[in-house]
């Protein structure tokens, strides 16, 4: 009657609920991106493990959004490699990268403003080639009840916060293994920002890995497991979110402390 296995507890409390957190899902190695002759990313290397929330913080123009655009294929890197679960994706066109499991919620929301909320969600599931999407729509509506009320409304007529929710919901419709979130708090009130971050953690707890780009470094580091600090196209710091939040340099430069 003495079952010893029952007493062994997993030493890693896995608050993400993502099961097999640990193995590398996304890996960037020495990625260089150019806009014309201007080198926007000067050799970015970073990795995101399955189940993590990783944040990329930095000031305006540091290359945060460019990094996400390189990953989702909307701006092709000139050199370097990007791998998803081990296989290279940096030569694929963006519409194929989505079906590999990377969904991008772009900076400035970019919802399809002349389409209804529901049609936007349908577009999000486009890469799934006409599978049934009712469950996913229900899941998005559970995460963002506001969207359920606005189901048939044209997205362009909604408030900034609602559009942000829609942009995130639309990205989730692709059932991504990793969600790229670009400035989800941009232009939102503090209350809404807090709400959005709660939902990001909830999405992560449901098993989606998140790579989060934010100007609101404090909120981002609070939500994330790990973080990278990017400055003029280079990663200058990489650590756990807690350590970064305690780092003197980070506190001065990005958390508004003197």
């Amino acid at each position: 009657m003495t079952d010893t296995t029952a007493t062994t507890v997993d030493p890693r409390p896995d608050h993400t609920g993502a099961g097999h957190r640990g193995d590398t899902l996304l890996e960037l190695e020495d990625v260089h991106v150019f806009y014309g002759n201007i080198e926007a990313l000067k050799g970015i290397s970073l990795n995101v493990a399955r189940g993590e929330i990783v944040t990329l913080i930095g000031s305006n123009g540091a290359g945060k959004s460019t990094t996400l655009r390189a990953i989702s294929g909307t701006h092709r890197p000139r050199s370097g490699s990007i791998r998803l679960a081990g296989s290279a994706i940096h030569n694929l066109p963006p519409h194929e990268i989505v079906s590999k499991g990377i969904a991008h919620s772009p900076e400035g929301r970019k919802v399809f403003s002349r389409m209804s909320v529901f049609e936007n969600l349908q577009m999000g599931a486009f890469s799934r080639h006409g599978e049934r999407i009712d469950d996913d729509v229900a899941r998005v509506f559970d995460l963002f009840p506001r969207l359920r009320e606005r189901r048939s409304q044209k997205a362009g007529t909604m408030s900034g916060g609602e559009q942000q929710m829609l942009a995130m919901g639309r990205a989730l419709m692709a059932r991504p293994s990793i969600l790229l979130l670009d400035e989800p708090s941009m232009g939102l009130s503090p209350i809404l920002t807090e709400q959005i971050f709660k939902i990001i953690e909830e999405i992560n707890a449901q098993g989606t890995t998140v790579l989060l780009v934010e100007q609101n470094a404090l909120m981002a580091l609070n939500a994330a497991h790990r973080g990278y600090v990017i400055q003029t196209g280079r990663i200058i710091l990489a650590d756990t979110a807690a350590n970064l939040a305690a780092n003197e340099q980070v506190r001065q430069a990005y958390l508004g402390e003197i």
């Binding site: 963006p94 519409h95 772009p106 970019k110 890469s127």
Partner: peptide
């Protein structure tokens, strides 16, 4: 729907998995 999406924003349409 994909045509309408492309007419609004080609980049974002591609992000949705549309072959523009």
């Amino acid at each position: 729907r994909a045509m309408r999406a492309v007419s609004e924003d080609k980049d974002v349409a591609a992000m949705m998995g549309i072959n523009v």
